[in-house]
């Protein structure tokens, strides 16, 4: 593992803020991107950045990478100002964009080779290992690759030079569950070596799997920074269950559970927080069928964070 290369502005011995955002604002003409957004990401943490589509997650990331320029506020990444020292910021970052666009005529090998030459001082030390783990054929042109394989290629591209900070925008899109599992394993290995991960997603379970803290963004504003366990309690699930025997509606008089629709055998429930008490009630009866779905992030936000930005 490489030692941290951050500037002396960050005191050794104290946990360093790898990303420090202060009142960052970005407007696209009259339309809002993000507004007065402030947060800090500590060294060695996997920080989840959660919000529905259009909330401002990608805008934040693009500002951090110098792809777009903020209209207000400031931010530093590894001690470097994102506007005036963008080059230095990008020297030690691995980035997975949300929109997957690659050079179609290049093979995977050519693409990795091409991009590795932009970092002559940071060789692609993890390339071979990542190619093996993600089981990717590098001889094929990128235009011939499936969505999932393209995603694997961009993951390898972002991680192969072993950067100190990973900025990931919806990184598991298109990956099959097995590869998703492998990806999160890789992230945890990065974390174990003192690396920092900024993981943006609109899928709550994805964030829960790996992150300790979660920044929740809605309509361009940061509405909360929560411990991931606190987010767990704010989970909403929709359960449809069909029983073979007769079940009384009163049995579901549980804190956080609302009965949306019921007859003697079929129930539609909305469960906020822990699901365990509901499962225990269901287990007392003969279950013919059940469907459990996670609520959309929009629904969760409306339920728990609706008041904050109103």
């Amino acid at each position: 593992m490489q030692p941290p290369t951050f500037r002396s502005a960050f005191t050794i011995g104290v946990v360093m803020a790898v990303i420090k955002i202060e009142k960052l604002t970005k407007y696209y003409g009259a339309s809002r991107g993000i507004e007065d957004l402030s947060l800090e990401v500590k060294q060695g943490e996997i920080f989840g950045y959660l919000g529905p589509n259009g909330a401002g997650k990608t805008t934040t990331i693009r500002c951090l990478l110098g792809l777009i320029f903020p209209t207000g506020g400031k931010a530093t990444v590894m001690g470097h100002d994102i506007v005036h020292e963008s080059f230095k910021v990008r020297q030690n970052i691995g980035y997975i964009p949300g929109d997957l666009n690659l050079y179609p005529k290049m093979t995977g090998e050519e693409l990795l080779e091409y991009f590795s030459r932009f970092r002559p001082d940071k060789p692609a030390v993890l390339k071979d290992d990542l190619v093996t783990r993600f089981d990717l054929d590098l001889t094929r042109k990128t235009k011939e690759l499936s969505r999932g394989n393209k995603q694997k290629l961009i993951i390898i591209l972002a991680l192969m030079h072993d950067p100190d900070l990973l900025i990931l925008d919806e990184p598991t899109l298109g990956l099959d569950p097995l590869m998703q599992k492998e990806f999160y394993k890789v992230l945890r290995e990065f974390q174990a070596r003192g690396k920092t991960v900024f993981l943006s997603s609109h899928i709550l379970p994805d964030v829960e799997k790996t992150c300790e803290r979660v920044g929740i963004v809605k309509e361009g504003k940061l509405v909360a920074i929560e411990d991931v366990k606190a987010v767990e309690t704010k989970k909403i699930r929709h359960i449809e269950v069909t029983f073979l025997d007769t079940v009384k509606k009163e049995e579901f008089d549980i804190d956080g559970v609302s009965v949306i629709q019921a007859n003697d055998h079929e129930f539609k429930l909305k469960v906020k927080g822990k699901i365990d008490p509901v499962i225990k009630v269901m287990a007392k009866h003969q279950v013919a069928d059940t469907i459990i779905e996670h609520a959309s992030l929009e629904e969760i936000f409306l339920e728990f964070y609706g008041e904050v930005t109103r």
Partner: peptide
């Protein structure tokens, strides 16, 4: 237009 500028400019390239 092709969307490849994102990856290119995320490299240490002025």
């Amino acid at each position: 237009n092709d969307g490849t500028m994102d990856v290119l400019l995320s490299q240490p390239l002025e």
